[in-house]
Amino acid sequence: MSIPETGATAVSATSTPKARRRGFSVFGVRVLAYQIILFVGFLALWEYAIRAQWLPVYLYGQPSGIWRELVKGVQSGALVHDTWITAQETIIGFIIGSVTGSIAGLGLWLSPTTAAILRPLMVALNGLPKIALAPLIVVWFGVGMESKVAIAAIITFIVAMLTSFAGSQEVDSDYIRMMKSLGASRLQTFRMVVVPGTVPWIASAFRLNIGFAMIGAVVGEYISAEAGLGHHVYYSGTLYNLNAVWGGIFALMILALILDAMVGWVERRMKWR
């Protein structure tokens, strides 16, 4: 049974666990030094370009201004509040969608007839950029948090369902034959072979889904919202307050890293081997 790598290894700043465990090698320190020099140099150049008026601040923002926005946002609690709203929408939507989607996808293994009937729908959903559904869902669920949770849940449901169904179909038919020869019922085969055999696929879907859930929540906030990081970024953008936009993007990045690390931890525990 092969473990799928459905692109779940999205770009992560940290290297593989193995490389990390090696600790600080000379090579690692040198790479880190170059990274810091590049990053600080880039910020310095950016700051200088604004101060020397090579670039207009209302189009690009300014590192010192972004820092002031971040400090202000944390002190007033506004940025923390927005981050917390987006985090909640992402997490709740992710859990609802991923769990029900995985169950639905696995359930289709039990009913090949239903799976055959739904096949065209699944092919269509697979090709669809799922975020395109967002405006519809906002219309149905309103401007509150519910609509963002719903977007995240629906997108992650589709991904989890398609992935877990595909995984269940990949279970080697010789295993099914072996179980049958042992006298196993279809339900026993499902429980003892198909479900555990599909877990690595589900784990990969979870890893993808945490990203999709966040995209769903933020795009929902772009469309219509009264709070959340997406709302903050969009609203600041309309006011040409680019420093605040960058501040929001920075908060999103931190949030994404934390959520991805959490799901990555779960994912590693779900993969036997």
Partner: peptide, 15 residues
């Protein structure tokens, strides 16, 4: 389940 059937592949469950 009246017969035990063993194939060329061991078909052990890896988990």
């Amino acid at each position: 389940g009246h017969v035990g059937y063993m194939l060329q592949k061991d078909l052990l469950l890896p988990w």
